[in-house]
Design a protein around this nucleic acid. Structure first.
Lengths: 250, 250
DNA sequence: ACCTCAGTCAAACATCTGTTTTATACAACT
DNA sequence: AGTTGTATAAAACAGATGTTTGACTGAGGT
């Protein structure tokens, strides 16, 4: 009976006793919301450090100095809390895409790509965004039910923009396979610089990076990627010129 | 009391009742070892799919059609099984490094890099190696106590070889920061092609890749990377020529 | 025939974890 | 004063999980 009741609540969240402090976006009554915010902050860091399943609500509540029941009260369940953390990450990801896109408005295709990369890498490696990016990276390898929102709102807009941009540079359709591969090559490079235990064990990453170091990395990825994309465009162009297949090797 | 006894066993594994079927590398008595192998195979797949903590010994034993106690009997504990799975992954990683390194012996530095990338990507994306590479990638973001062996035996040899190679191409010391960044750029690209739920949700990766597709990807990464490394070398060379900072974009 | 020991199995154990329950405190409103 | 609704707290619950225990089997050696 209890199990059934719980399952019903899960299926229809609106049935929950409180559904958090008042529904919708009411002012939540008074000075409270403190606990809620502390939970969100603690959860963001812990989820980023260890992933959804390896963090217990007791960990979160201990860090946030709240009672164990606080998560269920304010967010329905653990997943509800995670979704809210992830949504804020998605929002910041969208903001980064928009900023990096705007930075190149009115420029040539190559210059738009260069500026996109520079802005993007700076935000990506900014210490203040470290948690959300580790969070997003985790969804790639260990998806939770929140992955759908991430893909639709966070990943797709960026992929669409970069695909059109790369297609213009290469001179082909955005659905051409080369576009996707260049997209992968460009975006993958940044991920290598997220803090991770193996890189640290090898002596790379001297912990909080200086703005200078971040800029050096951004310049590296921009130079490397521009040259890579040009080479891909040139290789296929010269291949087309001699009619045959790929113009690989020497 | 029981808790203490268990902790003692954990601290000194040699106290365990069996320590697996006979110690060392004795022939394990008779036809058995079947169960052990089934456990290893099941564990490799499950650990690769879901990570160390998200797989239960019950999952593994169910998959391997063995009893729940089988893991503790044959491998001491869950971590012992994981270590053995990881060791076989490390061994294959070493073999890939050696093969990719040998493929370029006696060639120019650039050609050695090109061949290294081609061999490496082929092995990396070979369907038969998919599990071990997802396993290794997991250690990057969610290290277990097995990460030390991975770094020492698997990662370091590859990093050392590629560092020397890239330093030769760029024309600088292997400890130069540009070497590390090019190394990151080259290796990071392959990781983007491991099967992951987000790429699949976006419609990329048409499941088991054909040898043709893998070769296309390998060629792409080789062309892209060679051009990228050359550009980094050229940028710093021309920068040195005019004494100032970076010679970016234009 | 007897013993030994690796291997397997079912059951039990102790712990951890997400969630629920019950109770209490406090503020706002009637 | 009384009611209502929000927030928090302590305890309890139910299920899962890594590990251990004790019994049983069968082959090999004496």
């Amino acid at each position: 009976m209890k199990a059934i009741a719980r399952r019903d609540v899960g299926a229809d969240p609106r049935v929950r006793p409180h559904e958090g402090p008042t529904r919708g976006s009411a002012p939540t009554s008074r000075t409270d919301r403190e606990t809620r915010d502390r939970l969100l902050r603690a959860a963001e860091r812990l989820f980023a450090d260890r992933g959804f399943k390896d963090v217990t609500v007791r960990d979160i509540c201990r860090t946030a100095k709240a009672n164990v029941a606080a998560v269920n009260y304010h967010f329905g369940d653990k997943l509800g809390l995670y979704r809210e953390v992830m949504q804020s990450a998605i929002d910041r990801m969208q903001a980064t895409t928009d900023a990096a896109r705007r930075a190149g408005e009115g420029r040539s295709a190559e210059e738009r790509l260069r500026r996109f990369i520079l802005i993007f890498v700076h935000r990506f490696l900014d210490a203040g965004n470290d948690a959300i990016h580790r969070l997003i990276t985790r969804e790639v390898h260990d998806p939770t039910p929140a992955v759908d929102a991430l893909v639709e709102q966070g990943v797709k807009p960026r992929v669409d923009y970069l695909s059109r941009l790369l297609a213009e540079i290469i001179g082909c359709s955005p659905s051409d396979q080369r576009v996707l591969r260049c997209l992968a090559s460009v975006q993958a490079q940044s991920v290598a610089y997220l803090h991770n235990p193996i890189a640290e064990r090898l002596g790379f990453t001297i912990e909080p990076r200086t703005p200078r170091q971040i800029d050096d990395i951004a310049q590296h990825i921009a130079v490397f990627s521009l040259a890579g994309v040009r080479a891909i465009a040139a290789a296929t162009a010269s291949a087309r010129r001699r009619s045959g297949k790929a113009a690989r090797g020497r």
